[in-house]
Design a protein around this nucleic acid. Structure first.
Lengths: 184, 184
DNA sequence: TCTAAATGTCTCATTTTTGAGAAAAAAGTC
DNA sequence: GACTTTTTTCTCAAAAATGAGACATTTAGA
């Protein structure tokens, strides 16, 4: 059961992901509520946007965090982190984009940035571990691998949306491309 | 020497890529002209957006087309198409996104869609050729490979923007990941 | 240097978006 | 069924964005 507040933030994430300055009317429409209702939950655009950030953080933190603690084998862990990220869908890719675009200045002083770092450092440390154990190539920098992961997750999400790739294959393909693309 | 019209479309592509409904003031500012000047070249947002599409089409068509005719070896061609796409930068990724999002219904009846198809079919036919010759795996569908290419190009562009990956390495990394990720 | 074209400044009227009050309608709860 | 909570409808005023006219200023080229 999704409450109204969640319905609105979910809709907002979808809409803002495609068009950051879309009128709030569009968000309300997608959430199937009136603009008036939306404004009862969120005073303004900024407020809503912050709630979206929180929702995305929360989702990703939980999904990635669960996997992180469930697998001790780093390769298995890495694979399942990819799947978790794909399951987070737009929440993952939008969040990544928000913290890696021009205007955003990433700083440890910002609560949101810290939250982001907590989640994404789990990715990074796993990559680092794999590189240390020489399970993935050292020819690629860790930063590139991070970007690559985000790019592949985006590809997976777009594939699902477009409907041109069978849903059951998406994760398989994504892992195939990612693993071969970085393993030694 | 870039003329004003180009300066504005270039700025618009950058801005709209990040925020489709950004105020035209933001575009003017990026282009270092007044909003008044912008409006002398483009009657309204729609008009500007169409000009952006054309500019993106043109750029990609030329870049990809040149490579397509220059290399007879499909693998070499494919590699250089990737580099060309990366050089197109946002023009490539934004264009791809425009033709693969929810609202857009891709149809051969639309001039723009046709233009897009002309360019992207060169990608697709090369992939098909590589698969026929068993140079790339048949485990992955052509549609996935297309999405993957776009994802990797996006990763390359983001890497360049972030400055976290040395510029000289970006193309090397991208090709490393793409080739290993799909070759047999 | 003179002139035509391009751009900027200032201004204005419209339209769109935004945020919220008040009361009716609908949905839950006991 | 009576009561509470939530949502909608209708409304409005303020703010922001849009598109363009009139004229000053700058720029580029003969």
């Amino acid at each position: 059961m999704k409450n109204t507040r969640q319905k609105i933030t979910d809709a907002a994430i979808e809409i803002f992901n495609e068009d950051l300055s879309a009128p709030l009317e569009a968000v309300a429409e997608k959430a199937e509520v009136t603009r008036r209702t939306l404004h009862r939950y969120f005073t303004d655009r900024q407020d809503l946007l912050l709630a979206c950030q929180e929702a995305m953080q929360e989702s990703c933190k939980k999904a990635i965090g669960d996997v992180y603690t469930s697998y001790s084998d780093p390769l298995e862990r890495f694979e399942n982190m990819l799947y978790a990220a794909i399951d987070c869908g737009v929440k993952f890719s939008f969040l990544h984009r928000m913290h890696n675009n021009d205007h955003h200045q990433h700083t440890t002083k910002n609560e949101n940035c810290n939250n982001y770092d907590v989640t994404f450092n789990k990715f990074k440390s796993t990559v680092a571990e794999l590189q240390r154990k020489e399970l993935i190539t050292k020819e690629l920098s860790a930063e590139w691998i991070e970007m690559l992961c985000a790019g592949i997750v985006t590809a997976a999400i777009n594939s699902e949306k477009s409907g041109n790739v069978a849903k059951i294959n998406i994760k398989k393909f994504a892992w195939y491309s990612l693993s071969k693309g970085i393993l030694v």
